[in-house]
């Protein structure tokens, strides 16, 4: 069970319209990650590109490290001291010509800026204990926006862009806790979108939702990729195949196979991938 070399990934025929920009918005390079106090690493030399304006799905059985990998990509792991990273995680600069290693970031201010550029949506909806409007405006205010009408405009655009404007426009100043689970999750997406991030990381965003809410979120994610590059961790294989352009299969801290989603689901190279896809384990 050897990890595929990165070069193989590059053979997929991908025409980039924007030749000036890097094709990958993010690139994980031989990342090894160890949790605080853990004797052994939870991720072993992971290589994974996140393509610009595409959806990359991370699949694999529980405990395979897919959430761990995702949480390294905005360094939310660093809230709990004592982690150990090896390797590099490259993020394209806003102009998109160069890439910088986010594991080099040391200052808290720079970490905060990173998290505004690489947003994250969690498994359970996490509305803050404030009004709907304040929830979306929160990140903008944190980022230093002061002008009220600018904030308002961005909030409305974000809510519209997250397909939740119709349900919330008449109750913007009511508590966000009163929304349903699916609405709350779309609000959380709007909250992240309002910051105009370059990458959005979704950590099983629909696993706590009913099928109808799930459908709405999936539609929204598919729509969002016009604006932002997306990585999504999911347990739901149908979701990965419906939604994503690329899929990475992980198993016990190793990245087993990465390829176009159609290739992974129809004709995977690795036996292990095939076994997982067909439901023989996991």
């Amino acid at each position: 069970m050897s990890t595929q070399p990165l070069s193989q990934f590059e053979t997929t025929k991908e025409t980039t319209e924007e030749t000036t920009k890097q094709k990958d918005v993010m690139r994980v390079e031989s990342l090894t990650y160890t949790y605080p106090g853990a004797p052994k690493p939870s991720l072993h030399a992971i290589d994974l590109p996140i393509r610009r304006n595409k959806i990359t799905a991370l699949i694999g059985p529980s405990g395979c490290g897919k959430s761990t990998l995702l949480r390294a990509m905005n360094r939310i792991h660093d809230l709990y001291p004592g982690n150990h990273y090896e390797g590099r995680i490259l993020l394209a600069t806003p102009e998109g010509r160069e890439m910088e290693d986010i594991l080099e970031i040391k200052k808290e201010n720079d970490l905060i800026r990173l998290r505004q550029r690489v947003g994250m949506i969690f498994q359970k909806p996490t509305p803050f204990p404030m009004t709907i409007f304040e929830n979306v405006a929160y990140g903008l205010k944190l980022s230093g926006m002061k002008n009220k009408s600018d904030i308002e405009e961005r909030v409305v655009t974000a809510l519209q862009g997250s397909a939740i404007w119709k349900e919330t426009k008449d109750r913007l100043h009511e508590s966000a806790m009163g929304l349903s689970g699916g609405q709350q999750q779309r609000l959380c997406i709007a909250r992240a979108v309002a910051l105009k991030p370059e990458v959005l990381l979704f950590d099983e965003p629909t696993s706590a939702l009913d099928p109808i809410s799930t459908g709405a979120i999936e539609e929204l994610i598919a729509e969002l990729k016009k604006e932002v590059s997306i990585a999504i961790v999911t347990h739901n294989m149908q979701q990965a195949s419906r939604l994503s352009d690329y899929t990475a299969f992980m198993y016990i801290g190793d990245l087993i196979e990465y390829n176009k989603t159609s290739k992974i689901f129809l004709n995977p190279d690795q036996k292990l991938t095939e076994d997982y896809i067909t439901g023989r384990f996991g």
Binding site: E108, G119, F122, Q123, G139
Partner: peptide, 17 residues
Amino acid sequence: PPVLKESAYAMGATTFD
């Protein structure tokens, strides 16, 4: 819930925020 705090941190909040 830790995830609520994490989602605030994920939007660029400081510990004080």
